[in-house]
Amino acid sequence: MCTCELWIETLKGLRMSDQLNWVYTDKVKDHFVNPRNILKDDENFKEDGKGMVGNIKCGDQMMMAIKVDAKNNTITDCRWKTYGCASAIASTSVLSEMVKGMPLDEAYHLSPKDVTKELSGLPEHKIHCSVLGDKALRAAINDYYRRTNQEDKITAETSKIICQCMNVTDHEIEDAVLEGARSYLALQEKTKLGTVCGQCEKEATKLLNEYIKKHFS
């Protein structure tokens, strides 16, 4: 794609106001400066479930550990660690407060949107930094289900291949949207889907619009 087109994409994606205040809201700042519930190396946190997602090569990685009250099926405590930017730190910190006392199945269905709402918003181009927290939480809950022989409760994070030629999944399309793709062209630029036979364009466009609606409307 020519940079001119990319630039128009950028203009559409960025609101000027995003760049004005201190990079983030007061709430983000508060959690960034004083992150809650970080796993300390010297504490003996006996977790009932633990999950790790992300990859430091991509710039962020997240670990969540939870304690569960098996009788009530609720999360009683949690700890985390992250390799990531300010948004990643703040969103995991806030998430760690949200889930204490929360029933497992409610926690299981938390979305990045719930987290950003709790943070009073993140700049649009930083939303992708907040998606790892809930993913890590789900991984930790899955781990708990596995440890307690409740595999039936695990809803696999099924991913479906949309572009057969380039092997691109719906999850990758969602990630591309979170990273700022707002058009089919931008999506192609990020994921390379649709660059061989082109068959997948219709389905990819449909998903693109769904994900934009899901995360940004």
Partner: peptide
């Protein structure tokens, strides 16, 4: 140098 702040995670 990493451009997370500029809207992508490209190092």
């Amino acid at each position: 140098g990493s451009a997370c702040s500029s809207g992508s995670l490209d190092p």
